[in-house]
Each structure stands twice: as C-alpha cells, then as structure tokens.
Amino acid sequence: MKCPKCGSENVSIEMVQTGGKTKKHGNGIGGHMNNAARGLAAVSTLGMSNLVWKKSKGKEKSKFKNEKICLCQNCGNSWPIK
C-alpha cells in the first residue's frame, strides 16, 4: 500500500474509535416501586435507611464505531481504508 501524499510504502494500518452512542433505559415499574418504598423508609427512619438502600438508576448500553485508518510513517499523512 502506498501513501497518496509522498508515495512511500512505509504505511501502518490501525483501528481507531471514531464515534460512540450511549442509550439509557429506564427503571421500569419495579424500579419506580423500589424508589417509592425507599423514600417512605427514608422519611420514617429520618434518612438513615438511605445509607444502606440505594436508588434504582436504570441501565446504560454503549456502542462504539471503529474504523481502519492508514498512517504513513514518513510524512504523517492518514486516510481511511474503504
């Protein structure tokens, strides 16, 4: 493979992370009931139950996009592989 800028064959290929998305899913009915029960327990114990019982936060799922990139070792030019 040759560099389009200088014509050198001293080229390395790398996988580079170019983007990502995070989706957040809610608590659902069980999570909301848990948070409501946690709030009632906190009121009755003057907040001491919050030290042990944690809030339901839901779940997150991340997806990342990877891309192959060529990098010329002589001139530093980079370009994506199609």
Rank of each mutant, 00 (worst) to 15 (best):
M1R: 08
M1N: 15
M1K: 09
M1E: 15
K2F: 14
K2H: 13
K2S: 13
P4E: 01
K5M: 01
C6A: 10
C6H: 07
G7M: 03
G7P: 04
G7R: 01
S8P: 13
S8N: 08
S8F: 06
E9I: 08
N10A: 11
S12W: 03
I13Y: 13
E14Y: 12
V16Y: 06
Q17P: 11
T18V: 15
T18E: 14
G19W: 06
G19K: 11
G19T: 02
G20H: 13
T22M: 14
K23L: 11
K23C: 06
K23G: 10
K24S: 15
K24C: 10
G26Y: 03
G26K: 02
N27C: 07
N27G: 04
N27F: 07
G28A: 00
G28C: 07
I29N: 12
I29S: 11
G30V: 09
G30K: 09
G31Y: 00
H32V: 09
H32R: 09
M33V: 09
M33R: 05
N34M: 09
N34V: 06
N35Q: 05
N35A: 00
A36N: 10
A36Q: 10
A37E: 11
R38V: 02
G39M: 11
G39P: 06
A41W: 00
A41K: 05
A42P: 04
A42V: 01
A42T: 01
V43K: 04
V43E: 08
V43Y: 06
S44C: 13
M48L: 11
S49F: 01
N50D: 07
N50S: 03
L51A: 03
V52H: 05
V52G: 02
W53Q: 02
W53C: 02
W53I: 04
K55N: 01
K55G: 02
S56Y: 08
S56W: 08
K57H: 14
K57A: 12
K57T: 10
G58Q: 03
K59T: 14
E60L: 07
K61V: 13
K61F: 15
K61D: 15
S62T: 13
K63E: 15
F64W: 13
F64V: 13
K65Y: 12
N66S: 09
C70A: 15
C70G: 03
C70P: 00
L71G: 02
C72E: 01
C72W: 00
C72Y: 00
Q73A: 10
Q73F: 07
Q73K: 14
N74S: 14
N74C: 09
N74H: 08
C75H: 04
G76R: 11
G76K: 12
N77M: 05
N77D: 03
W79E: 02
W79H: 03
P80M: 09
I81Y: 07
K82Q: 15
